[in-house]
């Protein structure tokens, strides 16, 4: 089960990074009024990628505790930070991106 979770997390993390790259590429074709919104979304995706990275480390520590024993000291704080700060921040970023996009539409009008 843990290995499935590990693969899912790795694929998810890679996909998030790929989406970030594609968003950066697509940003140049967007109108300037939506630039803030896309930047905020990019920041949110960066936070999500960090969360996924922490999840990957946690699962790796579970599966290969001997190889990743050096993580034991930081893993608890990593998990706490990702759950307490990064995840809500990602949600806030998505909300702000949507609000900013709406404002951009209003400005265009």
């Amino acid at each position: 089960m843990s290995s499935i979770l590990l693969w899912l997390n790795v694929v998810g993390c890679l996909l998030v990074v790929l989406c970030m790259g594609l968003l950066v590429k697509n940003r140049q074709y967007e109108k300037s009024v939506f630039e803030t919104s896309v930047n905020v979304l990019l920041f949110g995706l960066l936070l999500l990628a960090l969360v996924k990275l922490v999840d990957i480390f946690v699962i790796l520590n579970e599966l290969y505790s001997e190889s990743f024993s050096w993580l034991n000291g930081y893993l608890g704080s990593f998990v706490a930070v990702s759950n307490v700060a990064l995840l809500p921040l990602f949600a806030v970023c998505v909300l702000v991106a949507v609000l900013s996009a709406r404002e951009g539409f209003e400005n265009l009008e």
Binding site: L87, V94, A97, V98, R102
Partner: peptide
């Protein structure tokens, strides 16, 4: 408790964002 509360808050924020976007 804080972690579970933050998770619920994230869900609420994402739900609000989804609602606003779908409304738009």
């Amino acid at each position: 408790v804080l972690i579970s509360v933050q998770k619920y808050i994230s869900v609420i924020f994402l739900f609000i964002a989804a609602f606003i976007w779908l409304l738009l």
